[in-house]
Design a protein around this nucleic acid. Structure first.
Length: 205
DNA sequence: TGCCAGGCCCTCTTTAGGGCCTT
């Protein structure tokens, strides 16, 4: 049985939206959660081998100058592979981060065993009353700890980690006799919204 | 700034279209 309270929560900053269009990672941030506590973190800039456009510089605060002396994606991703080990993985809109993780790992010939879960899909199901499911909105909605920094990898990964723990607590409150396993989370996120409400009676906040 | 992508999900749907999310 694999509990959902021991995971690695990760977030990429990238040059764009699609590795299929040649976009690369420029920063990876992650927190390691064990038994519901953040016990470790990872953050590194990486040089994508190309200039990032002005929008990305402004959006992330990561400048071309900052990336000039950063280690290569390959070097950083090799260290990140060691960091995640065989942990299951969580990200906000995981399909996006999984694309980049798969693309960057493919470049170094690394395969990982962990499964992915998505805090955005989970939020859409168990907090259907939220104004929207953007990370920033959910941080404010749930009054999660934050330092006011957004769109940097470790900051976003840390906030997503707190969001994940909040989501596990919501599920646990309504099924206190059952362990919240990673498989249960995957099951909930694969349900329709209507079925989730039948499966688990939810408080709204 | 929101074009570029793509998965998810809703509906005035399924022979489709468009909004939500991520950078």
């Amino acid at each position: 049985m694999c509990l959902a309270n021991s995971v690695v929560v990760l977030d990429f900053e990238t040059t764009g939206l699609s590795p299929d269009n040649g976009d690369r990672a420029i920063e990876i941030g992650a927190v390691k959660i064990v038994d519901g506590e953040i016990v470790d973190s990872f953050q590194e800039l990486m040089n994508p081998g190309r200039r990032v456009n002005s929008f990305i510089e402004q959006y992330t605060g990561i400048s071309n100058k900052m990336l000039l002396d950063a280690p290569s994606c390959e070097a950083v991703m090799t260290r990140f592979a060691s960091f995640i080990g065989e942990f299951n993985l969580v990200a906000h809109n995981a399909s996006f981060d999984k694309k980049f993780l798969d693309a960057e790992f493919e470049r170094i010939g690394h395969q990982y065993r962990g499964q992915f879960a998505c805090s955005l899909l989970l939020s859409r199901r168990i907090h259907q009353d939220a104004p929207n499911h953007k990370l920033g909105t959910l941080v404010e909605y749930h009054q999660l700890p934050n330092d006011g920094v957004f769109h940097r990898a470790l900051a976003d990964a840390t906030m997503t980690g707190y969001l994940w723990l909040q989501q596990l607590e919501t599920i646990k409150q309504h099924q206190p006799q059952q362990a919240v396993t990673f498989d249960k989370i995957k099951k909930i996120t694969s349900m329709t919204k209507a079925k989730v409400m039948d499966y688990i009676k939810l408080i709204q906040k």
